[in-house]
Design a protein around this nucleic acid. Structure first.
Lengths: 350, 350
DNA sequence: CTGAAAGCGCTTACAG
DNA sequence: CTGAAAGCGCTTACAG
């Protein structure tokens, strides 16, 4: 990290050839004799030459326009967009442009919106609203020469280049461990999930069951499926679920609207008695943790989920670098009262 | 994030003046009439001009050499150095150089080593072995015109520019919360600390006590001070501590060598019965968590502690940007068995 | 107060 | 197969 700067011109001078020839070797453009090539590469090694990316993109007039399509509630979207913004500020001097596509709530709407800007795009990062109908669409784009990455939710069956997001099975396992560590036993454990039958939520529950199955004195009750739209009805369903199961010591709320379970626990006077674990951080979750209604939430680096796809796609398109992995798992973070300050309204400095 | 590129030349052309004059306004170099200045700034706003950092540093031939001085056990050092490496790879094309100073284990040694490379340095990031004797040294450097940042451990009384590292009181509080959440009560809680009387460890204990004082049925025993060098003696001390306190339900090991408490708990057949909480991640801690000897450790983003000081010092020296805060708290992260994979041998992709 | 010239380290036509 | 020329967006002397 400490050597004096070596340039392609230095190498050319040492070898008494032109810098253009050196450039041809460095970039594998061919049209160089084997002998010259060998001598250049030797000198590159000897002097520890490393190309200057700043100069490269400046000369190249790199232009790389990345579209980012997603469908998130505002509180999650904000964190994603901060990560995107960060990636942009790192890459804009190298020629990156970004088009944010805050998509409507349907697979068709999401696809339409992408099609509209398609001619401008050099790459696409997509959070697929529904994996199934988007799989074919992604394949079309890739076949048409557009690199596509998924984030937050994967479409592993598609031709996407890579995925960045949480490992859903593991997130269920982690919540399972939290509940076994927090709960007094013996007792029963409930799962509150959505009635939408989403694959990633099924994976969470699978992971959760795996961990709980090792704990003999905590029994899982059949999951309660709620609607995330009709709030009052859902709260009543959860309340009934609680009163019908007096041995309940913990609830795992695996979908959005954790506050529904929070209200149910408050209204049945079970705060602190029934441990409640959920996912992700927002103002409401912050409040519920302060009140000890929720004991912990698990976060999944939303900021990084916005940041990394942009960086990797740019490296792929503009630098020709393949991503090291096709699946990048974001960290699963345990957030409780005494570290919540690092996850709520968190503004990473850099 | 989507506008076509605007250059200083564009502004000059629009206003029928030279690009040099535009440059003078943009960089506040003076020697420009008020009227011209006003017109330039207006056009900057209108066109949404943003300077290109890559071109700037290229032309400027920026050279910014940052020294990083630290004293860490290998497993922590590796993580710090990964963060430094990342910062270097982002900044090397802009003219950054880095000198790693893996210091000997004494304040004098650390100062000597820095003095040797002092003439080369444009900035210094330092993890102070002992804050007290280094405070004056840091002030001398700053008075001599060298910006200095502290990381991992702060010297708040010095003239250092900023600090990046964990909030020690908060880390004690977080461990306190974990112990109250994990322990069966009523019972007693022990603290294992070093006999070195280090300020930051006192802060940890302070935070820990604050949280425990709210829990009436968990009582803290007077901390046990051990030597971190004589391992066998320390283990025996901890074992005696355990057997003398049969009501013990949890141990908070706040210094390095968490495994000493681990061995003591194993040898007294208390695995899982006495909850054990410690700090940081390494191979040994990984193993102890797998064995359920340790229930959780708290991490403090060592990678980021290496990365951020470099970035902020570079921005300060080479871009004239002041850090937003003088104290940046790294995240305090709860690591248990089901999310340990994200903290052990963690290789951040970017 | 203002601007023309040369250069940072690279690439892209173009000419031999 | 090899190289001279012009340019990316900026800064740094230098000349007016």
């Amino acid at each position: 990290m400490n050597q004096t700067r070596v340039t392609a011109a230095d190498i050319a001078k040492k070898l008494n050839i032109s810098r253009i020839t050196v450039d041809r070797v460095l970039n594998n453009r061919g049209l160089v004799s084997e002998e010259t090539k060998r001598r250049v590469l030797e000198m590159v090694k000897e002097l520890g030459y490393q190309p200057n990316r700043a100069a490269k993109h400046l000369a190249k007039k790199t232009k790389c326009c990345i579209g980012v399509s997603y469908i998130f509630p505002d509180w999650f979207r904000v964190q994603i967009e901060q990560g995107i913004q960060r990636a942009f500020s790192e890459l804009k001097d190298f020629g990156a442009e970004i088009i944010l596509l805050n998509a409507p709530h349907s697979a068709e709407g999401q696809m339409e919106q992408i099609k509209e800007v398609l001619p401008k795009l050099d790459a696409l990062a997509i959070d697929p609203w529904l994996p199934a109908p988007l799989s074919g669409f992604i394949d079309e784009l890739v076949d048409g020469g557009l690199p596509v990455a998924t984030f937050n939710i994967d479409v592993p069956t598609s031709k996407r280049l890579f995925y960045v997001g949480c490992n859903y099975i593991q997130s269920g396992r982690l919540c399972g461990e939290l509940i076994t560590k927090f709960s007094s036993s013996p007792g029963k454990v409930g799962i509150i999930t959505t009635n939408d039958n989403l694959t990633h939520l099924e994976q969470r529950i699978m992971g959760f069951r795996e961990v709980l199955s090792d704990v003999s004195d905590l029994k899982i009750i059949e999951p309660l499926k709620i609607s995330e739209t009709d709030e009052r009805e859902s709260i009543d369903l959860i309340k009934r679920f609680i009163t019908e199961n007096p041995e309940l010591v913990a609830l795992y709320h695996d979908c959005s609207n954790l506050f529904l379970s929070g209200v149910a626990i408050k209204e049945t006077a079970n705060v602190g008695k029934i441990k409640l674990i959920g996912m992700d951080m927002n103002d409401m979750h912050y409040q519920l943790i302060q009140e000890n209604v929720v004991q912990a939430v698990v976060c999944q680096e939303p900021y990084f989920q916005g940041y990394l796809p942009i960086k990797l796609l740019f490296n792929y398109v503009a630098e020709g670098e393949w991503p090291e992995k096709t699946e990048v798992s974001t960290r699963l973070e345990v957030v409780i009262r005494e570290n919540i300050q690092y996850y709520h309204n968190y503004q990473p400095m850099m």
